[in-house]
Design a protein around this nucleic acid. Sequence first.
DNA 1: TATTGTTATACTCTATAACTATA
DNA 2: TATAGTTATAGAGTATAACAATA
Lengths: 158, 158
Amino acid sequence: MRQNSEPSAAPSDLRADNRLQTETATGAIGYRLRRAQLNVFQKFLAIFDALKLRPAEYSVLVLIGDNPGRKQTEIAEVLGIKRANFVTLVHGLEERNLVERIPSAQDKRANALHLTENGKAFLADAQARHAALEEETVARLGGPAARAQLLSLLDRLL
Amino acid sequence: MRQNSEPSAAPSDLRADNRLQTETATGAIGYRLRRAQLNVFQKFLAIFDALKLRPAEYSVLVLIGDNPGRKQTEIAEVLGIKRANFVTLVHGLEERNLVERIPSAQDKRANALHLTENGKAFLADAQARHAALEEETVARLGGPAARAQLLSLLDRLL
DNA sequence: TATTGTTATACTCTATAACTATA
DNA sequence: TATAGTTATAGAGTATAACAATA
């Protein structure tokens, strides 16, 4: 390794306040999207930590609540979760008495997924907390019109 | 809560087309943000796969290019990368002859990071590809005004 | 033959603890 | 005492292959 032969006088890359030039690295749309998404996700995590519920688990509960009796593969596929990884996830929910895996009569290979009574109450609580977070997020955006505007712009990126 | 204005023939869990009800699970701002972000990121990955460059590595190169001579810790901190994980990342860039770790004369504990000549050329190529992707993304959004609108909305979520 | 649920496995990202050599 | 770089390690999240039971 060679020694540092830089001149000690402050060039343009050593700014007066000693802070880094970050504009090039952080100006892209992808980067800004990621930052905002991580920020919103972090608030989600903070709220749902109390319920020991992770984002994927919450999505699964909501989807089963709206679509009782579906197969594991169907629920997993909609959420972009691999069959293999879905097994562990749903077993965890079953151990917590939130979800039931009921062997299907029509297709003996398949399990029909249902929420337990306990799971329904738990989900209602979780959804209430989620709704409160959503409301706060809309408020930060500047109201329902701003929310619609954001979603419209985001949809153009799909 | 508003009434259901849908032309309701089938119950939500047994729809005629056998598709799942996904609106509850996928309507939230966080979810939509995540989808859009993943989509943009995927295009980024597709382009940068050819350069065998991962997002974090690209950010590091850009940041070193704009701020030559900085310590590993400084670069890592700005990007939210842990010191420990940054070591492997920067060693990989050094092995590819893109970055030099030059022992600092002032502080013998520290390494000053610089791009090699090869690294500068490589970064210029990567940035050209990135700029093309950014241009395409802005076009999909609907032009510079839409881009500004999106960034303004995203900033409200920080 | 194809599909469902499952196990095993591996790879990436991220996070923490602890060491060394300097400051 | 504190900091810079490093090593080791562990936990999530995600990916594929292969198997048994069933279609």
